[in-house]
């Protein structure tokens, strides 16, 4: 079947979609957006979290056909999404998302020289920058889902308590960090967001 929907502000279309395919599969394998991760495919880890019409969901549990005509934001569009939210308030539709990783791109990958990780030419959402700064990224496989979930929580609740953060992120498993640096990152993003709002 054919499925059409909006991803990160751009209309996308996939043909010959098998009816049992998930939104996650279509994003990763048909739309070149592998940022959402396939860690459990049963809604028990949160690594595939995307926003479906603004609501965080596990994309592995959404049938591709259910997304017809709807709006999806993935980690690839998070920076634009956050920027437009900051500019206009509320949910914004994002600019064209970046494309996924082709083999050629993967072959060319190399860590950037020196400390270019702190920004440079890549615009990041505050939550993304906070994850880097706080050391919340290790293997990084849980990171995209956590970022989407944490960003949405800060949108709803700009001044979360620790218990609020833990509750909001209780659907996202991380196996590397023990979550402490993730807590630090969300607190940091909340603090920076608060400072920015006061300015």
């Amino acid at each position: 079947m054919r499925v059409s929907f909006t991803v990160n502000g751009r209309p996308q279309e996939a043909d010959d979609v098998w009816e049992g395919e998930s939104l996650l599969y279509v994003l990763r394998e048909r739309m070149g957006l592998p940022g959402s991760k396939n860690a459990c495919e049963q809604g028990e880890c949160g690594s595939c979290t995307v926003r479906l019409d603004g609501v965080p969901v596990c994309s592995c549990l959404v049938a591709a056909g259910q997304v017809e005509g709807r709006d999806v934001v993935t980690v690839e569009g998070l920076a634009d999404f956050a920027e437009q939210r900051a500019e206009h308030g509320g949910c914004a539709s994002a600019a064209p998302g970046s494309c996924g990783t082709s083999l050629d791109a993967a072959r060319r990958w190399e860590a950037r020289p020196a400390d270019s990780q702190t920004g440079g030419d890549t615009a990041l959402a505050p939550i993304q920058q906070a994850f880097i700064d706080a050391g919340a990224v290790q293997c990084g496989f849980c990171t995209p889902g956590l970022l989407v979930a944490a960003d949405e929580m800060l949108e709803r609740n700009p001044t979360p308590t620790d218990a609020d953060i833990r509750e909001a992120l209780s659907g996202n498993l991380c196996r590397c960090t023990g979550y402490e640096k993730i807590m630090d990152a969300v607190r940091l993003a909340a603090a920076r967001q608060g400072e920015a709002a006061r300015r």
């Binding site: 592998p34 991760k37 396939n38 990783t101 990958w109 860590a111 890549t122 990041l124 990224v137 995209p144």
Partner: peptide
């Protein structure tokens, strides 16, 4: 900070399951 941090937070970092 990690040199692969930006790639990992933007979803661009190519994991083995992302190869195509």
């Amino acid at each position: 900070l990690r040199p692969d941090g930006t790639l990992k937070v933007t979803g661009e970092f190519a994991y083995s399951s992302d190869m195509w």
